[in-house]
């Protein structure tokens, strides 16, 4: 192909990108518009509140999709993301419309066990402040527990992996305690901790500390011996070998432990918040379940899911940064 032809082709491609319309955007606008119409047009069997607000939000998004469809191919990175998730946007609109129909509009899935989307929205509107306080309490408990657990677990893991004597005495304990669910320690934590908050932090710390300790120990223990030989030849003492060889070399293992710790910590978080807490998402879920406020339970669960997913994402970002050197290996 000649250069002129190539240029011509490029111009043509540009032209088609101008003329091109985002078809999924139109479909998404259609499905989200349908959800809005269903919400506002049909009456609730039992009123849930916030139907107007929900219809306004979904309707506004439908309009936005229409407006975006001629320009989305020229929006660069953000546009690519939208195009990639186009089918999902369509599906979510369909899902919202069906959800409205099956719950609030037909009563086929009845109150209080099922809630329509605008019922959940109503929870955020009506109980938003309390939920925000709960998020704050949950994040405080989780971060104190997780960070202290990871710090202690990591230090223990390095010691277990490095020192034969420490491993001889410590490993049996870790192997014995490791498989026991952290929540089984609740009775004795009440004795050892003056406040129930302290006990809750301890449970979360224990759940996150143990996988980190085990994986760090195995990571430090499995470092290529010749790295230590190189270090010793170059005049390194034990301190240097631990800090500059054992620790960075074991980092890939440590991150596996950290991801396990994350999931364990989320799992025990709800239980830990039952220990005489006054706020927190786990407490909120318990409290609302007792009063059959299932819409509130779902609303809180959605927040928890988003928080957990966000934290997992954050850890992935940190890992990719710290383990960039692995690129050639994995």
């Amino acid at each position: 192909m000649s250069e002129a032809q190539a240029l011509d082709g490029a111009a043509q491609a540009q032209l088609t990108s101008f003329r091109r319309l985002w078809r999924d955007g139109f479909f998404a606008a259609f499905s989200w518009g349908a959800a809005a119409l269903v919400t506002i047009g049909l009456p609730d069997v039992v009123p849930w509140g916030s139907a107007g607000l929900f219809a306004a939000i979904t309707g506004a998004l439908a309009v936005l999709f229409v407006l975006l469809s001629p320009v989305v191919y020229r929006l660069g990175r953000a546009g690519e993301v939208m195009i990639h998730y186009g089918p999902w946007l369509v599906a979510i609109g369909v899902w919202l419309a069906l959800w409205e129909l099956s719950t609030a509009k037909s009563g086929w899935l009845p109150k209080p066990f099922f809630s329509p989307p605008h019922g959940l929205l109503n929870v955020y509107v009506a109980d938003g402040t309390r939920l925000l306080i709960c998020i704050g309490y949950t994040l405080r408990l989780w971060s104190l527990g997780f960070l202290s657990g990871v710090a202690v677990g990591y230090a223990t893991g390095v010691a277990l992996g490095w020192s034969k004597r420490f491993s001889y005495w410590g490993m049996p304990f870790l192997k014995l305690i490791g498989p026991v669910p952290a929540t089984a320690w609740i009775p004795c934590t009440f004795y050892f901790f003056p406040t129930t908050f302290g006990a809750s932090v301890f449970i979360v710390a224990l759940a996150s500390g143990i996988p980190v300790a085990i994986l760090t120990a195995s990571g430090v223990g499995s470092v290529n011996r010749s790295f230590y030989d190189v270090g010793r030849i170059l005049g390194a003492d034990n301190r240097y070998l631990i800090r500059r060889v054992a620790i960075p070399a074991s980092l890939p293992h440590v991150f596996v432990g950290l991801f396990m710790a994350l999931y364990y910590s989320f799992a025990v978080l709800v239980v830990a918040e039952m220990l005489g807490a006054k706020y927190g998402l786990g407490w909120y879920i318990q409290f609302q379940t007792a009063y059959s406020g299932y819409a509130n339970v779902y609303a809180a669960l959605i927040i928890m899911a988003a928080l957990c997913a966000g934290i997992v994402r954050l850890l992935f970002v940190v890992r990719d940064r710290l383990l960039r050197w692995q690129e050639g290996f994995i």
């Binding site: 030849i233 170059l234 005049g235 500059r244």
Partner: peptide, 27 residues
């Protein structure tokens, strides 16, 4: 007395410069 191995055994987690600096840093 420095031993050079058949495998380069460079520390993969750090740069070439830092690898070369290892002995000086360790001391």
């Amino acid at each position: 007395r420095i031993l050079v191995f058949q495998d380069p055994t460079l520390f993969p987690w750090t740069t070439v410069w830092k690898n070369v600096a290892t002995g000086l840093e360790a001391r």
